[in-house]
């Protein structure tokens, strides 16, 4: 695996020496992508490819850490010790996934601090789904089943993404996510088969989370801004609508086994296409939430900013201690160097 450090030296590869023929680099890059080879951090890559990856990986990482909040909201109220342990482990995994992904983004020459700054100042986004509130315990189950389910549908193809570090981070993430989805399903099943109040709680949660989950796949293909180029670069391997359809087809029978209904009167099996047809998605809501008008946008980002600001003195203390006691070990990550021998 290429390291973040190794990358730093060549982040300027785009502005390669004048003497080098950029066209030749572009050709090598295109050929590698066409041959389904992985692009590694120190390889030359087009600026736009790098920028697209940074944007996408950062958004993904931000989603993981903002996504901790709606579920952490229930850690202190989990109704059994077993559920509490599961939920804590899950929220912890999300922090871990954020870390894997920030690391992958760092191999592209952007530090985690820069990315966090952009999150805190609203210049980079996180998945809009986390702007919805978790109102009852059943929401924890609905998030696991539907939100993590949609995320997995999105993410499994990313394990074959053309950028090596991202693909490898996703392999790790996907392995861990499948636990998340299963625990959510199991939680809902327990509620659905429980008391009438518990069943109602589960149905209410599914009613509220179903449509926002479908929106997680992004706007329809004909309105999707970045899709075509990302597909060409093999960052993305399936279109938004394709993945959305796959998700619906997976969920319908799962909902039946749960004994819960999906809140869509238009949902029906189409024998001919071999898929479930579903009703129109309210894209006005999607764009509205994305623009900041969701129920929790303000709350989520405020909590994130506060945690970061309140932690500043701790991070400073540890850095100061390290400087005192180790003579300031490490580098800044900028100093990865090549050997003289190779240069000679």
């Amino acid at each position: 695996m290429a390291t973040a450090a190794a990358q730093r030296t060549t982040r300027t590869a785009d502005s390669a020496p004048d003497t080098v023929d950029t066209a030749a680099y572009q050709h090598a890059f295109d050929a590698a992508v066409a041959a389904d080879e992985r692009i590694e951090p120190r390889d030359w890559m087009p600026d736009a490819y790098r920028a697209t990856l940074v944007r996408q990986i950062a958004q993904h990482a931000h989603s993981e850490i903002i996504g901790m909040q709606p579920e952490a909201n229930w850690i202190t109220r989990a109704p059994s010790l077993r559920r509490k342990a599961i939920l804590m482990a899950k929220v912890q995994d999300e922090a871990g996934h954020g870390l894997y992904l920030y690391s992958a983004a760092e191999t592209l020459g952007t530090s985690r601090d820069e990315l966090l700054d952009k999150l805190h100042s609203g210049r980079q986004k996180y998945s809009s789904i986390f702007n919805y509130p978790t109102l009852t315990w059943a929401d924890v189950g609905a998030i696991g089943w539907l939100v993590d389910g949609a995320a997995i549908t999105n993410q499994v193809p990313l394990c074959r993404c053309s950028y090596g570090p991202y693909a490898r981070a996703m392999v790790r993430v996907c392995k861990e996510e499948s636990f998340h989805q299963r625990q959510g399903y199991e939680l809902l099943l327990a509620l659905s088969k429980g008391t009438p109040q518990q069943h109602a709680m589960a149905q209410d949660a599914v009613d509220r989370w179903w449509w926002p989950s479908l929106m997680m796949f992004g706007p329809p293909d004909d309105e999707s801004q970045h899709s075509a180029q990302s597909m060409e670069w093999k960052i993305k391997r399936h279109s938004n609508d394709e993945l959305r359809q796959r998700f619906v087809d997976i969920c319908v029978p799962q909902a039946e086994s749960l004994g819960l209904t999906l809140p869509d009167p238009d949902l029906r099996w189409n024998e001919e296409s071999g898929h479930h047809e579903f009703g129109p998605i309210d894209w006005t809501e999607f764009w509205d939430v994305l623009k900041g008008n969701g129920p929790c946008n303000e709350q989520r980002i405020t909590q994130r900013r506060r945690a970061h600001a309140e932690g500043a003195w701790v991070r400073e203390a540890a850095a100061a201690y390290a400087a005192k006691h180790t003579g300031g070990t490490g580098g800044t990550g900028e100093a990865g160097h090549e050997t003289g021998a190779q240069r000679a």
Binding site: I75, T76, M88, A89, V91, G98, Q303, E310, V314, R315
Partner: peptide
């Protein structure tokens, strides 16, 4: 557990959990 989502740095989220 109350620290979840509030830790001073991401690495410490994982440690406290």
């Amino acid at each position: 557990g109350e620290w979840a989502g509030h830790a001073p740095v991401l690495e410490e989220e994982v440690a406290l959990a």
